[in-house]
Write a protein that binds this DNA or RNA. Sequence first.
DNA 1: ATTGACACTCTACCATGGTAGTATGTATTT
DNA 2: AAATACATACTACCATGGTAGAGTGTCAAT
Lengths: 247, 247
Amino acid sequence: MATKRSNQIEAEELRQSTPSSTVLQAINPRQPIAAQIYERLRRAITTLSMLPSEALSEKELSLQLGVSRTPVREALIRLADEGLIDILPQRGSFVAPIRLRDVEEAQFIRESLEVAVSRRLAGGCSRRFLTEIKSNLYDQEKAVNTEALDLFLDLDEAFHRSFCEEAGLPKSWRVIQSVKLQMDRVRYLSLPDLGHLRVLLTQHRSIVDAIESGDVEKAGNDMAAHLREVLRTARKLSEQRRDLVEN
Amino acid sequence: MATKRSNQIEAEELRQSTPSSTVLQAINPRQPIAAQIYERLRRAITTLSMLPSEALSEKELSLQLGVSRTPVREALIRLADEGLIDILPQRGSFVAPIRLRDVEEAQFIRESLEVAVSRRLAGGCSRRFLTEIKSNLYDQEKAVNTEALDLFLDLDEAFHRSFCEEAGLPKSWRVIQSVKLQMDRVRYLSLPDLGHLRVLLTQHRSIVDAIESGDVEKAGNDMAAHLREVLRTARKLSEQRRDLVEN
DNA sequence: ATTGACACTCTACCATGGTAGTATGTATTT
DNA sequence: AAATACATACTACCATGGTAGAGTGTCAAT
């Protein structure tokens, strides 16, 4: 039976002979392999560096990454759970199309949860939270001004995550993050619009203001309006990019 | 290498020599094994036939069920994702305690989503749906009158699921079902209270009435009140049963 | 009696070989 | 030429063996 080492050497050779992609980078054998693979594939799919209907085979991925098929398989199962890939038994696994239906439902779930979270925070939150969230807003402005798109997206994610953290709702964030993936793919289709980013930043500020002033209704309404922005662009894109967006 | 057949025979012998439990029943090798095991363990945990801190070992389960460790492992991973078990690497997997924190957050997520679903249905739903849901209510009444507890729980689940189906929100139901597991365990601690079931049935009727009359506010409020019932009993129980409920 | 090292046993994690089922291309029949 | 049976080449799924690390008990040293 081949050892881990020989397996890794094979993979090393393979890596040199094939064109590299974001997925193909050294795996750290010290920490859980399945989680690393999941993370990497998730990123590749949400950033559209892997496109819908592209095939992901257990065997090929395990060879390319220099690991066995077991952790690859576990990563694929998680991705399928989150609707990012479709596993067809005995046929293959494929990146799922961007289904307008799924994006709409993701938006529904996110809105339901984040509106409730915002209302809760408007009902009471810590000084510390308000300080930190304003610091984040400041960073967002810098990112917009320097046109640092990826940075803005990271700050946006941190913005929404910190809401759940402050409210003491970690599982809610996990749900949001999971359905958010469907919306992220749409974002990457339409990203380089700087004016759009300014709109988002304004909305973020409006939400924070409402929370700070304790206006429960406004906090919820502003968050709802904010989250509907993404859906609007998704609907627009579904007309233009029928090659990538389904329904 | 041992074949599937010899493995199954070993398990057959083992099954005769050990005390049976709800988990130990013949696996159907025709359909996905991992899913069957997940379903079975999930049921055992939510119905409290497996209690918190009880150990689940890949090896032991695979022997008892007559399958290999791989599908067992996959089932355990899913259960851990849903917070029903804790996997401690290189130490073991154990049924998670009923954490009041988790129950409260499950309630929060469920309320956020189901209130939004109810409001949407109150804004418009099909005649067919109203007919079916009333038929379900009638069956619920029969179940209460005959004190058929398990039947009532099944009808209750169908009641809530049909809301999501009518609204065209299948993923939302998956999320609800997933967090609902935490609340179901609490229910099984306190179930045999017939009066409580009558309260739930009345609440169900009130929600349906609000939806039928198109009263969006009332539909949402009634659903929220309904879902808070379970949490109330959970809080009560957490005082009495410190052996099973944490926090 | 207390503490330390160390062997032993247990676990989940990963590697890898085997199996059944699906799709596809290729002969063979009509 | 069109349709059908069939071989072939895939796939995901499952079985099983190996490995590193965490817990525990024992025995030696202090």
